[in-house]
Amino acid sequence: MQTTLYSGFGVWDPVIWTIAGAVILLLVYLFWRSGVSTYRKGSEQERPYLSGNAEPEKNAVHIGGGNLYWGFTEGLKGYYSRLVPVHTGDLNDYMLWYFGVLVAVCALVVIFQ
């Protein structure tokens, strides 16, 4: 079966890619296996090690979604502080946007006829 996708500019063959990925995973597995195994299930090793301190409660360890990408939104503060308030949740504003776009597109179409 032919699996190559010709985009007209290049080719993309997912099967070859997948086989290559599988070979790499196999190699990784072989390397990993040849290491020294000192891991024992159910022993002290399964517990998290925090420099000898007591482990905090589970909820305190997990980083929730709200904390991720804080730096990104902080860095683009100027953009987000304008963009987010536009989503007002007010039905009147939604309709205003629709009619605005309608008029704008109409104008564009008439100008660039």
Partner: peptide, 22 residues
Amino acid sequence: LVALVLMITSLAMKAGSVPMHF
């Protein structure tokens, strides 16, 4: 032409394209 604009903008809103995605 007006009919075309009406159709495209209305359907674009139904499809949820910015700036009618709210």
